[in-house]
Amino acid sequence: MIFHIAEVSDWQAAQVSGDYRVSTRGRSLADEGFIHAARRGQVLGVAQAFYADAGPLLLLSIDPDRLSSPVRDDEVAPGIVFPHIYGPINLDAVVAAAPLRREADGRFILPS
């Protein structure tokens, strides 16, 4: 399983369009050339670094075997590897879309 942090409005738009094309906050698949994803242990760090001041968020759980677009692990810094999806996310590859909630102090909590 790989994961993607999505703004609720972007996920709702994908339900209408038929696929998901947001790479990361404020950047599209067309802008970046891929969609950022993460392993479970990387999600909270990404959330804190890039979404601390964002509105309502969802954590999309994506089954890579169901994706119609290729996934590749890319080294983003020495020894740091993240999965990237090189094309749109077909909606049936998303097996869950759960709220990414915060503690009162602002720290994110992974959905169970």
Score class of each variant (00 low, 15 high):
residue 25 R to F: 11
residue 31 D to R: 01
residue 37 A to E: 14
residue 73 D to G: 13
residue 109 I to F: 11
residue 50 F to P: 06
residue 17 S to Y: 06
residue 59 L to T: 00
residue 99 P to W: 00
residue 70 P to M: 09
residue 42 Q to M: 05
residue 78 P to W: 04
residue 88 P to F: 04
residue 25 R to D: 13
residue 39 R to A: 14
residue 88 P to W: 05
residue 101 R to V: 12
residue 4 H to D: 04
residue 88 P to Q: 06
residue 78 P to F: 04
residue 85 I to V: 15
residue 24 T to W: 08
residue 76 V to C: 03
residue 93 A to K: 02
residue 82 F to N: 13
residue 41 G to P: 08
residue 31 D to Y: 02
residue 60 L to Q: 01
residue 69 S to V: 02
residue 59 L to F: 05
residue 80 I to H: 10
residue 4 H to Q: 12
residue 104 A to T: 07
residue 86 Y to F: 15
residue 51 Y to W: 14
residue 84 H to R: 15
residue 12 Q to Y: 09
residue 83 P to T: 13
residue 60 L to N: 01
residue 2 I to G: 15
residue 20 Y to I: 05
residue 28 S to C: 05
residue 21 R to H: 04
residue 57 L to P: 05
residue 87 G to L: 02
residue 8 V to W: 11
residue 100 L to P: 03
residue 82 F to D: 12
residue 91 L to E: 08
residue 66 R to N: 05
residue 62 I to H: 15
residue 27 R to L: 09
residue 57 L to F: 02
residue 108 F to V: 06
residue 41 G to W: 01
residue 44 L to G: 05
residue 100 L to T: 03
residue 67 L to R: 03
residue 65 D to I: 01
residue 21 R to Q: 06
residue 71 V to K: 00
residue 86 Y to K: 14
residue 67 L to I: 04
residue 93 A to I: 09
residue 3 F to T: 07
residue 18 G to V: 08
residue 67 L to H: 05
residue 23 S to W: 09
residue 58 L to D: 02
residue 49 A to E: 11
residue 64 P to V: 07
residue 88 P to C: 01
residue 29 L to Q: 00
residue 90 N to G: 01
residue 20 Y to T: 08
residue 27 R to E: 10
residue 71 V to D: 03
residue 18 G to P: 13
residue 67 L to V: 08
residue 95 V to M: 07
residue 11 W to D: 02
residue 46 V to L: 10
residue 99 P to F: 06
residue 25 R to P: 15
residue 10 D to C: 05
residue 20 Y to L: 06
residue 98 A to K: 09
residue 30 A to R: 04
residue 48 Q to S: 14
residue 61 S to I: 14
residue 57 L to H: 05
residue 90 N to S: 03
residue 15 Q to M: 10
residue 13 A to P: 04
residue 81 V to L: 06
residue 39 R to Y: 13
residue 62 I to W: 14
residue 45 G to S: 07
residue 52 A to N: 10
residue 59 L to N: 01
residue 7 E to P: 05
residue 112 S to E: 15
residue 87 G to E: 06
residue 104 A to Q: 06
residue 50 F to G: 12
residue 10 D to M: 04
residue 54 A to Y: 13
residue 26 G to C: 13
residue 9 S to H: 15
residue 111 P to E: 08
residue 37 A to I: 14
residue 75 E to H: 10
residue 106 G to W: 00
residue 6 A to Q: 00
residue 92 D to L: 08
residue 77 A to N: 03
residue 83 P to K: 07
residue 112 S to H: 15
residue 22 V to Y: 05
residue 9 S to I: 10
residue 65 D to F: 01
residue 29 L to T: 02
residue 9 S to A: 12
residue 38 A to T: 12
residue 84 H to L: 12
residue 70 P to I: 10
residue 34 F to D: 13
residue 25 R to M: 14
residue 81 V to K: 07
residue 32 E to R: 11
residue 70 P to E: 13
residue 61 S to E: 15
